[in-house]
Simulated assay, not measured.
Amino acid sequence: MQSEKIIKLAVLNLGLAVLEIIFFSEGLLGIQLRGGRAFETALGVTIVVLSFVIFIMGNYKLLFEKEEIINTVNLNTTADYIEALKQNKSKKLFTKDIDNILEQIDRFNNKKETIKDMLLQKFNDDELSYSKFEGTVLDIEHIFYINIKSIINKLNAFDEEDYNFIKSSEAQENYSPKFIKNKRSIYHEYISFIKDSIEDNEVILLKLDKLLLEISRFNSLEDGEIEQMGAMKEIDELIKQTKLFK
């Protein structure tokens, strides 16, 4: 049983016990099930019944229900990606990485909005120049979320309990060094992939920063000048590379 599940069980059951003490202790609320006023007796019975229902349903859910993992095929919105990442925060090995990715999503959205606002100060939204910038930002956003989708796939597949077991003294005693080495190398590939993908998204954020800086330097841009902007060239190259490897 996962330690997080044990903690939740303890909190639930201790919480119910504390509430019962508060409601029925004479020195506190002192609600009586017998011999009290009708309203007080009815309230006491209701509290007991609700406590029993919460106890049964809460413990059943924590002990037997499995949390449904979000399939990456169903990821359509930013909220979907955030929820899928948060589902994996119980995997302690990746807690900081997931926090980092969630922060990256927030930073990307802020930069995207800043670019849009800056472009609308220089162009009308029906101008070709605006459309070119907007199309480029949408393409780079697509790559950004492809990286995150790949990360979520790896997080969903990563078995942290098995990873911790293979590092334990029990595993060392029961399996050959060669087997343990091969098993650990597989898990290290997962870890390396996730960290590399996080860095790839940092590169995307850096390119957006460069694009913002270049846009801020110009009051107006002709179509030919847009293609010659250094940041646009870098982003276009990244988009081409990604399409080649898809």
Rank of each mutant, 00 (worst) to 15 (best):
V137Q: 08
K181E: 10
I140A: 02
I146Q: 13
E202D: 15
N174S: 11
K167S: 03
D126A: 10
K207V: 00
L93W: 01
R107G: 02
I180E: 01
I105V: 15
T95K: 14
E214D: 08
L138M: 11
H188Q: 15
N182L: 11
D126I: 10
E141N: 06
T95S: 12
I148A: 04
K183Y: 12
V203K: 06
E199T: 12
K210G: 08
F133K: 01
R217S: 12
I215W: 02
G135P: 00
V203P: 01
E189G: 13
I105N: 00
N147T: 03
L138A: 13
K210S: 08
E189D: 13
Y190A: 02
S168K: 07
I148Y: 02
K96S: 14
N153Y: 01
E161Y: 05
R217A: 10
H142Q: 12
S185F: 11
Q104H: 11
T136E: 12
L205W: 09
I215L: 15
D97T: 06
I152V: 01
K183I: 05
E141A: 11
L138W: 07
D162Y: 14
N201Q: 03
L155C: 01
L128Q: 11
S131E: 13
D106C: 05
L208H: 06
D139Y: 06
D209I: 05
G135M: 03
I143E: 05
V137E: 09
L211F: 06
T95F: 13
Q104W: 01
I204F: 05
L211I: 04
S131I: 09
K112Q: 15
N201V: 10
K116V: 03
D200F: 09
T136Y: 06
D125M: 09
F133Q: 01
N109Y: 04
N100R: 13
I148F: 08
N124G: 15
I105Y: 06
I146Y: 04
L212M: 15
A157W: 04
L119F: 06
N110F: 09
L93I: 14
F165C: 03
L212F: 08
I115N: 12
E160S: 10
Q104I: 03
D159H: 06
E189H: 07
E214A: 11
D117M: 08
I98A: 05
I101W: 02
I215K: 00
I148V: 07
S129K: 10
